[in-house]
Nucleic acid binder design. Sequence first.
DNA 1: ACTGAAAATAAATCGCA
DNA 2: TGCGATTTATTTTCAGT
Lengths: 159, 159
Amino acid sequence: MVNFTNEAGPDKTDRKIMQLLARDGRMAWSELAEKIGLSLTPTLRRVRQLEEGGYIKGYVAQLDEGRLAGKVSVFVAVTLVNQSEEVIQRFEEQIALSPEVMSCFLMTGDADYTLRVVVPDLDGYQHFLTRTLTRIPGVAHIKSSIALKQVLMRPSPLL
Amino acid sequence: MVNFTNEAGPDKTDRKIMQLLARDGRMAWSELAEKIGLSLTPTLRRVRQLEEGGYIKGYVAQLDEGRLAGKVSVFVAVTLVNQSEEVIQRFEEQIALSPEVMSCFLMTGDADYTLRVVVPDLDGYQHFLTRTLTRIPGVAHIKSSIALKQVLMRPSPLL
DNA sequence: ACTGAAAATAAATCGCA
DNA sequence: TGCGATTTATTTTCAGT
């Protein structure tokens, strides 16, 4: 018997660490240590704790979505014919395989989905609709809302 | 006279680099070099080119949104009283200061906005509405759609 | 828990093919 | 564009407070 898995949760210093790494995920640990006013060892230990505790899920390069995928975002409200396990599972699976789909949320109430789909232009969206979305079994109805400008996009919540 | 600013754009190797860094943004350059089958020097040069060309916009730690901000996402369609510079500018400015707002898109047509707001619960959303959103000058109408599950969220486009 | 120093790795730079 | 070697910086580990 050893350790009552010290579930303390992030303190103020941990939050500062997360904040800094959310802005620059490749910052040198030595630089991070300096900025939070601790030496290397405890800094790195805190980072590892945050990673293991799942507060930091990973580190990613942010790619230019507009340049690599397209400048047009379409919010798509999808209604399924029913909410059977099979229909839902197949839908979510196919969606995850479509590179145009950047995010997908299951909505309350009507139990349908809202997707954000990124395409180069409206032609590209039409292709996505006809070649991908309408071909997924169980899709009953689709309503599209087109965005032309991304005003704000936070990769991580503000602390 | 020297160089017709060689605007070549990413080749297959560059795309592989972006793909790998989008999955692990803190990977050692030496490991990246191994995976793409080049030595360190050209690998690092390519990475720097991708950064300078804006294909890689930066590196960030992914924080657990559900744990740090909340499990409830609300899509909010906001209509402004008009599209005057002043109203638009103030709206976008205030939105950017609100930590609950994770993203904001300017929509075509009616020229209103779609936001994704993250809150711990519906009470938190009510607070956001009354303390923040409805207090921004120029906000005429609000329509909320509540999500309870994030099915998919890509930090970067698939290559 | 934190510090500081030593040992092991990794990153940046340079001359060259 | 690419390679390999050198210099410089960073990360990791460990003994001490």
